[in-house]
């Protein structure tokens, strides 16, 4: 089951830090919610750089769901 990380309302670097901390703890399957484009790009880039396959899906109210899987 995917681990959900809600970063809505947070700005850099916290969304990336939350994801990387969870990934370092051994997680391999994440659903990350972001609500701004800078965070979407930063988290996607960090996930890709760490060997995750990344998919994004636009949700309502400007929220994007990033799926990061190893």
């Amino acid at each position: 089951m995917s681990q959900v990380i809600d970063t809505c309302g947070l700005s850099c670097p916290q969304p990336v830090l939350m994801f990387l901390t969870a990934a370092k703890a051994g997680g391999t399957d994440f659903e990350i919610l972001v609500d701004n484009d800078a965070s979407r790009e930063n988290v996607s880039r960090a996930a890709a750089n760490n060997g995750f396959a990344v998919e994004t899906e636009d949700k309502e109210q400007g929220i994007t769901l990033i799926r990061a899987k190893k």
Binding site: C12, P13, V16, L17, L20, R45, A46, N49
Partner: peptide, 13 residues
């Protein structure tokens, strides 16, 4: 952010 990301994540973007 240029400096921070290198120190915090080793990201050079």
């Amino acid at each position: 952010g240029a400096v921070r990301d290198v120190l915090l994540f080793r990201q050079w973007h």
